[in-house]
Nucleic acid binder design. Structure first.
Length: 203
DNA sequence: TATACGATCACCT
DNA sequence: GGTGATCGTATAC
């Protein structure tokens, strides 16, 4: 299957967020492959989006968002969870798409192992990757993979799948950004596949 | 140097 | 439905 190239990520952020739905997120660790279908995304768009980390300007942390599309932006939140983003749009314009949930396709045993590391009980398959922190834990994604070029097909990349119809996609406000200005809180920049059981938050 | 807090999750009631 | 965990980053001193 074809690896998504820079031209895909360089589209406007809302387009990338919408069109990443249904594509395959692939992780390779020591020759072992894990694969999942992207079912939920969020767009963080530029210096005027008060929910976007880059809205206060260029810092060591947000520097990668100002670079070329197709790179990874991975950061630690709440002291324990990693978040996976792909840089979008034009170089110099800081924007990214957060991957919020995937449907596990292959490598479920490895995902299960990695998810169990910090949990008392073995998580059910339905609970493996239905959230941004969970999918990073399942796929072994951490800051070591920050600022990597995802178009190279090494360690972490996205493979093309046939596009979804408009009718299969739902939109709504983003999750967990109460600190942002009201218009940004209300912006319908979260995208998910309708009725998909692996979406992090229903309804 | 010190402090506050977050693009979350698991476990508890 | 509520809350503690846990630490990098930004901001204030």
């Amino acid at each position: 299957m074809a690896i998504l190239q820079r031209g895909f990520y360089a589209q406007t952020t809302l387009t990338v967020a919408r069109e990443l739905l249904g594509q395959y997120l692939v992780r390779e660790i020591g020759g072992q492959l894990m694969r999942g279908k992207i079912v939920e995304t969020e767009a963080y768009i530029g210096p005027n989006d008060t929910a976007c980390h880059a809205n206060k300007g260029r810092t060591p942390r947000t520097e990668v968002m100002f670079g070329p599309a197709g790179y990874t932006y991975i950061y630690l939140i709440y002291g324990m969870y990693n978040m996976l983003n792909f840089i979008t749009a034009s170089e110099g314009f800081p924007a990214a798409v957060l991957i919020r949930a995937i449907k596990p396709i292959t490598g479920l045993e490895i995902m299960q192992q990695q998810r169990q590391k910090t949990n008392r009980k073995p998580p059910k398959v339905a609970n493996l990757t239905n959230g941004p922190g969970k999918l990073c834990q399942a796929l072994g994604v951490d800051k070591q993979l920050n600022k990597r070029d995802a178009t190279l097909g090494q360690q972490l990349w996205v493979e093309e799948n046939s596009p979804l119809t408009e009718a299969a996609i739902a939109t709504g406000p983003r999750i967990g950004i109460d600190y942002a200005d009201l218009p940004d809180r209300n912006a319908p920049w979260r995208f998910w596949i309708k009725a998909n059981p692996f979406v992090s938050i229903k309804k």
